[in-house]
Amino acid sequence: MSKTMNKIVKFLTTAALATTLASGITLAAGGGNKLAKDIDFSFEGIFGKYDRAQLQRGYLVYKEVCAACHSMRLVSFRNLSQPGGPEFSEEQVKAIAAGFEVTDGPNEDGEMFQRPAVPADRFPSPFANVEAATSANGGAYPPDLSLVTKSREGWHFPWYVSPFIKLVKGGGGAEYVYSLLIGYEDPPHGEEKEGLHYNPYFSTQWLAMPNPLNEDAVEYADGTKASVDQMARDVSAFMAWASEPKMEERKRTGFFIMIYLGILSVLMFLVKKKIWRDLH
């Protein structure tokens, strides 16, 4: 079933690409950026689940690399131990949280004070506010990553195939994050832009963020080799979870509801048939 689906989608994608190339229309409605690489993430499809080990590795990359500039203000430490996520143990989460300082208060004297974070706290943001973040990053605000894989799309197709492809493949938000992270390259014709870096996957091809990932930028606890590709995969999976932390619960509930409703509608059909049979 899913194999035939994949074949149909592949056919549609190829046909779409062929026709658009032939007619010379720019692919991306957003401005001519490259289509994201289609990664087979574990969380795709009706039964897809997050890969716990991958999310734990992804969290490490996020914490060591991304969190230096980007906030993830909607996610709390406690989420890290919730079912359907990275599923760190509660002890691990307490230890992770304790590694951060957060501002609390006011206390009895009316003073704000610093204290170690607890699991109930949100991830602290690296900058006090949007203005501070913008100013510290050369005038470009590093966007909050809480919803990044849902607010970005990895691919655009012509209108006559797009609805069908996206129904099966989704918007490609996690693929976009992955592709952006591995996509830095030398600009064509040696062109240079002050304070900007060339990346064909970005909507305007030039972005303020320099290439964030280098080989062995982090050391994985499970011994996985921290190649750029591996880190990009892991951190984009982690961001997909951060954007949609209740996905597994939703799919599981949905599965049972569909079975229940399916059986009920068959029974209802038989009831209807029986009632109407006597009439004619």
Partner: peptide
Amino acid sequence: LFAILVFLLFLFGFVFFSPDYLGHPINYV
């Protein structure tokens, strides 16, 4: 009732397995 159940099957198909398909990604900003 039968028709309602079949319609709900389609609705729940989207709710549970493709909940953002009918929306705009940019509205998550």
